[in-house]
Write a protein that binds this DNA or RNA. Structure first.
Length: 480
DNA sequence: TGAAATGTTGGGGCG
DNA sequence: ACGCCCCAACATTTC
């Protein structure tokens, strides 16, 4: 129920950021209890530095804000610029009693929010922040000696699971009375979030954005795909993973809601594995909080001396899905076409970039940041450091994924690979993941001409693996 | 949340 | 029946 607020009454600003939902929104609940709510969103590109939102994210944000505005009956006020200034202007203009928000955890956001809090406090305006995007606060989950965990399993099992359990989600606030900033003429379209050439429409066709759809997707996933999650999640051709990550990133869903929807089921291995994926998300946020330079610096400093290559051509082939290694190309094209990539394939293409091509993980991180709908600073940088071997609890240097072997194992019928690499549609299973070894007549019958309509492999798997081992070996005896 | 190289075992073919 | 070889299948080690 939404009621109009009159100007004279106490107003609480709820500042939407990465919590683009109405239900289970602790700040919004509290704001609605304390007064009339002025819901705002500020496009803040000024402070975000190198990690200005990527192209795919901006497009998603546009849709998500539109959905949110709709569920607020068109009363979301949007702005562009410096949040401190915008909020102060509102505070001066209206009878604002408090400014509430759910916490964000990117380093620049933490600095920004602290400063705004101080500014408001100096003017005796109540500024309050809430836990709305994580299950456990990063500063609360620490080892006994008060230092942060750097290994996932103890972090999750001892740190998280033995801390206070995630709270039951809040329902939508009832009787929320909404205020609107009538002077503000800016509309969501004016935020200029959409690309000039609408390449994003093809990507968005694979998704339904916004809280309502996110909630439905969660419910359907739990109902239909939960049972065999542990096994099925490794097969990218199956519709077996939740694909909730973009919704979680933008806060269309809270991790609380996901956690409770899941734990509402009987305790199985499938449940444990699904929950631990939420655990990895928490772990990433904890790492980013404890090590704010995670997006740029190797967590293990000895990797600063790693002999990365610079090779524009390799990078371009990887980005465009033209490496000649079918599973890698399928993954990169899935990313390009849908704004998403299946988790197992992310590991395969990541390993390939870093270990077979010997390109710096920064290149992968940057490309994913721009292309993924679920691009998330904590998760993206922690995951790239993990696959590169320089992160916390990282993949050991000798773990080199073989895209061909991975293909036979996890896409045995080639359904996923053929979906995204249709030029290999008619190659028999036997040669699908190593077309360079196929006899000429088989290639010919399949309509494949290597170097013409599908590339020769840009690197030899066996030999590039050995080069990688050698390169990593050179760090082995270094400290840290 | 690998893969390849190397080692071991055991069944079957065969003289 | 026996020993020998081959090799697939599995286990262990190494990177």
């Amino acid at each position: 129920m939404i009621v109009n607020a009159s100007l004279s009454e106490n107003i609480i600003i709820h500042w939407f950021r990465q919590d683009l939902r109405i239900s289970d929104n602790p700040s919004l609940v509290e704001a609605a209890l304390e007064g009339h709510v002025l819901p705002i969103y500020i496009l803040d590109d000024i402070n975000s530095g190198e990690h200005k939102m990527g192209s795919a994210s901006r497009s998603w944000l546009h849709s998500s804000l539109s959905a949110l505005d709709k569920s607020l009956e068109g009363k979301l006020s949007v702005y562009i610029g410096e949040p401190e200034q915008i909020i102060l202007d509102l505070v001066c203009k209206y009878n604002v009693k408090g400014v509430f928000w759910n916490r964000c955890y990117e380093p620049w956001q933490i600095v920004r929010d602290q400063q705004i809090k101080a500014t408001l406090a100096a003017r005796s305006i109540e500024a309050r922040s809430f836990k709305g995007s994580l299950l456990w606060e990063p500063w609360e989950v620490l080892k006994k000696d008060a230092t942060p965990y750097k290994v996932f399993t103890p972090y999750y099992r001892k740190g998280c699971l033995q801390a206070s359990p995630p709270k039951v989600p809040f329902p939508k606030p009832s009787n929320m009375s909404l205020h609107i900033d009538l002077d503000n003429k800016l509309r969501i379209n004016d935020l200029d979030l959409l690309p000039k050439i609408r390449w994003d429409q093809g990507l968005l066709a694979h998704w339904q954005v916004g809280e309502t759809h996110a909630q439905l997707k969660l419910d359907k996933f739990i109902e239909n795909h939960f049972k065999h999650y542990k096994i099925a999640r490794d097969f990218p051709a199956l519709d077996a993973v939740s694909r909730l990550s973009p919704h979680l990133h933008f806060g269309e869903l809270s991790p609380n809601q996901v956690w409770h929807a899941a734990t509402n089921n009987e305790a199985t291995d499938d449940l444990d594995h699904f929950l631990s994926e939420l655990g990895w998300r928490e772990f990433s946020y904890s790492l980013l909080y404890q090590f704010p330079d995670l997006p740029s610096n190797n967590l293990q400093p000895k990797f600063d001396r790693f002999p990365w290559l610079e090779n524009e051509e390799y990078l371009r082939s990887w980005q465009t899905g033209q490496t000649g290694h079918p599973l890698v190309d399928a993954g990169m094209r899935e990313l390009w076409q849908t704004g998403y990539m299946h988790n197992r394939i992310r590991m395969v293409v990541g390993s390939f970039l870093v270990k077979n091509l010997l390109l710096h993980w920064h290149h992968g991180e940057a490309w994913f940041w721009d292309c993924l709908f679920d691009a998330d600073l904590a998760v993206n940088s922690a995951s790239w450091q993990w696959i590169a071997g320089c992160g916390a609890d990282a993949a050991p240097y000798f773990r080199v994924f073989n895209p061909s072997t991975q293909g036979y194992k996890f896409d045995p019928e080639g359904e996923y690979t053929r979906r995204f690499v249709p030029e290999l549609k008619h190659i028999p299973d036997k040669y699908l993941f190593r077309p360079w070894e196929a006899p000429d007549d088989i290639l010919h019958n399949a309509g494949v001409k290597l170097g013409d309509n599908y590339p020769y492999p840009i690197v030899d798997l066996k030999q590039s693996r050995l080069s990688a081992l050698e390169a990593f070996q050179s760090l082995k005896n270094a400290p840290n």
